[in-house]
Amino acid sequence: MSAEAVGRHMPAVVTLDDLTAMMAADPHGHRYETSPEGVLSVMPPPGYEHAVATTRLTAWLVVAGWPAERITQAVGLRILGPGDEAGGRIPDLVVWSKPQGGGVWLPTGDVLLVVEIVSPGSEATDTVTKRHEYAMAGVPQYWTVDRDPDQTVTMHRLAGDRYLVHATMPFGWVLDTAPGDHLDV
């Protein structure tokens, strides 16, 4: 799909290559994702508070000694569905067990943690849809940061094929602990 086709001639099935082309052609920096079932989502670029929360988590990990090359922001993950379908999600933060090679849509095999900063309008996608998709992809831990007054962090751990809530605490409390208190490495 060419950049000129974005928004004018959408294909019946949007591939990860199509998403990459759409993001490259978008002058406004929107994020394009698709579920393994083919549901397309278009999100505006993150706002200031959203970006600050992601930066603070990244700094927390780096200051604690986590290697910077194992922490990424806004990198695409290939999410496989029950059949041969592949979707693509772009988490706000990913913590890896080892550095990754290049690419736009990376496999989830080396992912230790995915974090989504919940934005207005993305509540259902972040807390239900993505939670299910990341669990089915085998991501061991999934955190959501709600933008309530305390910026509540809900930490989920994989149990079988679904997540169980491990802890819920204010964002500031998380930053006052060590990453090793929460991450299984």
Rank of each mutant, 00 (worst) to 15 (best):
M1V: 12
S2P: 13
M10H: 13
M10T: 15
P11L: 03
A12S: 15
D17C: 05
A21S: 15
A21G: 14
M22E: 07
M23S: 12
P27V: 01
H30N: 15
R31P: 11
Y32N: 09
Y32E: 05
E33F: 10
G38Y: 00
G38L: 08
V39F: 04
V39Q: 15
L40M: 11
P44V: 06
P44Q: 06
E49L: 07
A51K: 12
V52N: 11
V52Q: 14
A53F: 06
R56G: 14
T58Y: 13
T58D: 09
A59Q: 15
W60T: 02
G65I: 10
G65S: 09
W66Q: 13
W66C: 14
P67I: 04
P67T: 06
A68P: 11
E69D: 15
E69T: 11
T72K: 11
T72M: 09
A74S: 15
L77G: 03
I79P: 14
P82V: 11
P82I: 09
D84C: 08
A86L: 12
G87E: 09
G87V: 05
G88F: 03
W96N: 02
S97Y: 02
K98M: 10
Q100R: 14
Q100T: 12
G101W: 02
G101F: 04
G103P: 06
D110R: 01
V115C: 04
E116T: 03
I117V: 15
S119H: 02
S122H: 05
S122P: 12
T125I: 11
T125M: 10
D126G: 04
H132I: 14
E133K: 13
A135K: 07
G138M: 07
P140W: 00
Q141M: 02
Q141E: 14
Y142K: 07
P149H: 00
D150F: 02
D150Y: 03
Q151H: 13
T152E: 01
T152A: 01
V153N: 01
V153M: 01
M155R: 10
R157L: 05
R157A: 14
R157P: 09
A159M: 13
A159F: 12
G160V: 02
V165T: 06
V165S: 00
H166I: 00
H166C: 06
T168M: 04
M169W: 07
M169L: 15
P170T: 00
W173M: 13
V174M: 10
L175W: 00
D176G: 12
D176C: 04
T177K: 04
G180E: 14
L183D: 11
L183F: 00
